[in-house]
């Protein structure tokens, strides 16, 4: 089938970009060292790409829209706030900064708790208006940004440099422990949601159709919203904010794989996500020589694509 062929091609491309990243520019005799440096990064990249791509894909299905992304859930400013507060109050030498695993866990817990609190209020009130939820998310995001700006202005410049590393996506924060924890979390989400993935096909037809076709809409949306939050929080806590990767990846996926079936879409988007982030990181390390961040690169591309999408006549 054509879809399977495309999937195969994508897999091939993923492997190529993986090899490219792993084996490019290795000086003779440093192979082991380079691998030791690059392999954990690759694992982290793939984990993050899976989370971001699948998270954004599911999110866009829930909101029935290909322009909105989970970045408007307000998770990124919350992440930044968490990091800023830690460094501001406990300093860059505190355990919560030095111990990356502790930092990772704390960040994830805070992001999840805040989101669950918000969902609770909104879903309990019987309001199933997801857009409203997002609007509240962005407002809270703006509020967090106000705090961030204030704290970041008065923070000691040396401490700020430590913070800055956390504010731009990078692969330097990853260690084996985090990878392990992240993988466990990701797999639990996959197991938790796997059986429900088929409902996404119907949910993508809109709320009323979905209910009419026998989907317990409220319950499923709540569940998927939570799953999206976990995925995005996980990716953010792992490599930092990468706002537009998901947007770019999911839209490219829809362009390439023209189907509504999520079992194809999710796999394709995950592969495309890996390709994008691997090639991006290769570019950052080998062409820009770390003068640009992965965040900026992806945001540039994703952002231009975003503007192209919204300027296109009759976007939906």
């Amino acid at each position: 089938m054509q879809l399977n062929k495309k999937k195969f091609l994508l897999l091939l491309l993923t492997i190529c970009s993986l090899c490219l990243y792993l084996f490019i520019d290795i000086k003779p005799g440093t192979f082991d060292y380079a691998m030791k440096l690059r392999l954990p990064k690759v694992a982290g990249v793939i984990l993050a790409a899976v989370c971001l791509s699948a998270g954004t894909l599911i999110f866009q299905t829930l909101v029935n829209n290909r322009i909105l992304t989970p970045c408007i859930l307000g998770l990124t400013p919350l992440y930044v706030l968490t990091q800023t507060v830690i460094i501001f109050f406990w300093g860059s030498t505190s355990l919560l900064v030095v111990n990356k695993t502790a930092n990772f866990l704390l960040t994830i817990v805070i992001m999840l708790m805040c989101s669950m609190f918000l969902y609770r209020i909104l879903f309990e009130r019987q309001s199933q208006n997801i857009l409203l939820l997002l609007l509240i998310g962005t407002v809270l995001g703006s509020l967090f940004s106000s705090f961030n700006q204030t704290l970041q202005r008065i923070i000691d410049p040396n401490e700020f440099m430590v913070l800055q590393n956390k504010l731009f996506a990078s692969l330097t924060n990853i260690n084996a422990e985090i990878l392990f924890l992240g993988a466990i979390l990701l797999f639990s989400v996959i197991i938790w949601c796997y059986k429900d993935l088929k409902y996404l096909d119907v949910i993508s037809m809109g709320k009323e159709q979905a209910i009419s076709l026998g989907v317990n809409y409220k319950q499923k949306v709540k569940k998927f919203m939570l799953a999206v939050t976990i995925l995005i929080s996980l990716a953010t806590a792992m490599i930092g904010p990468v706002t537009f990767l998901g947007f770019l990846v999911v839209n490219v996926t829809h362009e390439i794989i023209k189907t509504y079936k999520h079992k194809y879409l999710i796999i394709a988007s995950v592969l495309i996500g890996c390709i994008t982030i691997l090639l991006g990181q290769t570019l950052v390390e080998n062409v820009f020589h770390f003068n640009a961040t992965l965040t900026s690169l992806i945001t540039f591309t994703g952002g231009s694509y975003f503007i192209y999408m919204v300027m296109r006549e009759n976007n939906a």
Partner: peptide
């Protein structure tokens, strides 16, 4: 509600350039 959301998305793109 959709309109301000895409506005915020656009704002995100632009401020990413600023940050870069």
């Amino acid at each position: 509600i959709y309109i301000p959301l895409i506005g915020m998305m656009l704002g995100n793109v632009i401020s990413a350039v600023t940050e870069f």
